[in-house]
Design a binder for these strands. Structure first.
Lengths: 110, 110
DNA sequence: ATGCGTTATGCTCCTTTGAGCATAACGCCC
DNA sequence: GGGCGTTATGCTCAAAGGAGCATAACGCAT
């Protein structure tokens, strides 16, 4: 017996940031490209792009600075707001998981 | 900005108990009937019954003692194992929510 | 025997969600 | 100008999950 946990941020009762975006933005930061980040996650570019757009719309802020055409074909970089959000959510999720883990141990491992 | 949280128990990497079953079993206990519990939750009897059956199969134990026919047409009662599981999960979830709530406050409310 | 209310179960329909295809636009490089 | 790689976006298809309908079986009450 084990437990699982999902945590995400909401704004106006709509989901705006969860583990999916965390992974996506982290990889975009590494690669400088939405396309390659999506491939790394095994998800379609189509979905990655749509998720980001929806989150941006709900949050009311830009997460990515994107440029199309040029030397490498184009690319994407995280805005300052996106970097801050990634950091905040990452720390929050990590601490939350630890907290729940200890609560679980207290309730289930005797 | 706010957060949301989902917690459930797993066995062999398969979900076996979450908020849905908690509500369902609690209402079955009150009403003595799967049908009326499902109606109270606004879900179909079909789904309620299927969820319970699947959980029983994955857990490898009976959650309900059911009888069909008779005075009131039939009914269902929780087994001892079900009552224990409900209690354990309820306490675990409650404490986990409190814990995450305080983690959230620490990270987001300054 | 008939009726009633509940459990038990299959089947069809609808909605959601993601996958994948097809383009278009763009800007560097040759 | 042609090719390449990336962003941008619409469309179609398949898979999953829930809703709801249609029965069947059962056992008490009348």
């Amino acid at each position: 017996m084990d437990f699982r946990l999902k945590i995400w941020l909401e704004k106006d009762n709509q989901p705006v940031f969860g583990r999916g975006l965390l992974c996506l933005l982290t990889l975009i930061r590494q690669h400088g490209s939405i396309k390659r980040a999506a491939e790394d996650l095994g998800m379609s570019y189509r979905q990655a792009w749509g998720n980001i757009k929806k989150a941006e719309s709900r949050l009311g802020l830009k997460l990515l600075i994107k440029h199309v055409g040029g030397e490498s074909g184009g690319g994407a970089q995280l805005t300052n707001e996106a970097r801050q959000l990634v950091l905040k959510y990452e720390n929050f999720m990590h601490d939350a998981e630890d907290a729940v883990k200890s609560v679980y141990a207290r309730h289930f491992n005797e």
